[in-house]
């Protein structure tokens, strides 16, 4: 634990602290917010935190961009995590787009994008459905 009191350790891992804070912020929004749009925003923050984790981990202090030079001693940052995260960003954008599209459709159909209201509507729908079918089967047995 005493490592946490060592300023060089704390500052040296600054990217990780930020990552954790950002990640938890995002996750908290996803869990705690009832608005579907805000959930997507939370999801984006959550994912952005991961992007930061990868990118910062690939950074080499004093390293340049990984491009071809004549100097074999030239230090460069690790390009692999950066490239990986490009893919992840694409996935993130696709997810966001799809989430927004779904939200729009939900708004059209339900007339709201508040989670608790949607749950309520879903719940009523189920009850109505069950009541209707029970009524018809009661009618059937009455006919029989």
């Amino acid at each position: 634990m005493d490592r946490l009191l060592d300023p060089s350790f704390v500052l040296g891992h600054m990217n990780y602290w930020l990552f954790v804070v950002l990640m938890m912020t995002g996750l908290y929004i996803v869990v705690a917010r009832g608005n579907l749009l805000k959930k997507i925003v939370g999801l984006n923050i959550f994912q952005a935190a991961v992007f930061m984790l990868y990118i910062s981990a690939g950074k080499v202090r004093g390293g340049t961009a990984p491009i071809l030079t004549d100097n074999p001693g030239e230090a460069y940052s690790n390009p692999l995590p950066h490239v990986l995260i490009l893919t992840a960003i694409v996935v993130g954008i696709a997810t966001t787009a799809l989430g927004l599209a779904l939200t729009t459709r939900i708004n059209e159909v339900y007339g709201t994008i508040e989670e608790d209201e949607i749950l309520e509507i879903d719940h009523q729908e189920t009850e109505r459905e069950v009541a209707a079918i029970l009524a018809t089967s009661a009618q059937d047995s009455a006919n029989a």
């Binding site: 996750l27 996803v30 579907l36 959930k39 999801l43 959550f46 994912q47 997810t95 799809l98 989430g99 779904l102 939200t103 459709r105 939900i106 159909v109 339900y110 949607i118 749950l119 879903d122």
Partner: peptide
């Protein structure tokens, strides 16, 4: 189906 897909999307992405 819409709200189910949305739930799935959020949890799946997490």
């Amino acid at each position: 189906a819409l709200s189910a897909a949305y739930d799935y999307l959020i949890l799946g992405t997490v």
